[in-house]
Nucleic acid binder design. Structure first.
Lengths: 185, 185
DNA sequence: GTCTATACGATGATAGAC
DNA sequence: GTCTATCATCGTATAGAC
């Protein structure tokens, strides 16, 4: 299989999802029409349907992209040599939130309540992020607080759970600020 | 103005919003058609439009109803003579969450990211709930921990903020459990 | 692969009788 | 106030040329 062609295909798909996310952040998942995404991406209707089976497929791809991007930021801290303490971890995480992506993220939560495919994506990504947080906190407990690895892992669980919860609440808070307010720091 | 007529009108409106909330919890805000709400309420299309200007108006009414109901539970604790400590407060609050209403609540968050009217309703209700939590925590600090009222109010602020955040995260968690799981306790 | 034009279905909202 | 029947709009998805 020609991997160059595959790479181009992935690039087009990314181009489309990125345009879609911009539209979603403005008008929401369902109120965004294919025509709008067409205009935003600079492509045509036919081209979009050549890369995505239907709109549901496109929404899934966009949801994955947004959630993956957020998880990516987290992954960097987990591998750090000087792990931040939980409060600092949360502060850095929330500081890295992009308002537009926060809106799409919250829209995705809403969609997940009635769409099983989206629900699985969200739950899966949330579990992964919680696991990464667990790694971060464990690393901090071991390297900075000098706990035994076994005990550190155990004590990290409720802490990771709480950090995740506070992060989600912060994401919601940012998503609920009106688009006109988001430039004001 | 005849208040009996007004009361009947309110009753009909409630009947419609309750049916709407049931539909929303199953299919989401946007994917629920007026026809479905018609069937669920046992009324007709014309009757619904006699009580609500349009679908947006109906969604607003439903959002208000759900959020107000959740705030109501909280109001009881604020007036209690033996205020629960923050952990207990959160535990009781989360225990009182109805899965169907949790789903509509999260859907409302999603809608609020792009709909200014809904956004104002959500922000307003959130602020009110946080204020009530503040009252609860202050009452606990004064009556149980025997702090001075002035200091209690000040110390209660970050606590109320955190309880609210954890409550929101728990609401999301419950909303994301699939409808088939919600009977399993 | 990408485009334009179009078919088809669904849905919000209205009209008018009772 | 409530109903049934209907309209008009919009949006997804496809067909077919290039």
């Amino acid at each position: 299989m020609p991997r160059l062609t595959d790479a181009r295909k992935e690039l087009r798909r990314a181009q489309i999802t990125e345009a879609a996310v911009r539209c979603f952040s403005r008008n929401g998942l369902e109120r965004t029409s294919i025509a709008e995404i067409t205009a935003e991406s600079g492509l045509s209707v036919g081209s979009i349907y050549a890369h995505y089976r239907n709109k549901a497929d496109l929404v899934q791809g966009s949801a994955r992209a947004v959630l993956a991007k957020r998880a990516e930021v987290l992954g960097e801290y987990a591998a750090s040599d000087t792990p931040p303490d939980p409060d600092e971890l949360l502060a850095r995480l929330t500081a890295a939130i992009d308002p537009a992506e926060a809106r799409v993220g919250v829209q995705t939560w809403g969609e997940a309540t009635t769409n099983l495919v989206i629900r699985d994506i969200v739950v899966d990504m949330t579990d992964r992020m919680r696991a990464m947080l667990h790694d971060c906190v464990t690393a901090w407990l071991v390297k900075v607080e000098h706990l035994e690895p076994a005990e550190a892992r155990e004590r990290a669980t409720p802490v990771a759970h709480r950090v995740m919860a506070l992060y989600q609440a912060e994401l919601l808070y940012i998503a609920l600020q009106s688009p006109t307010e988001e430039t004001a720091s």
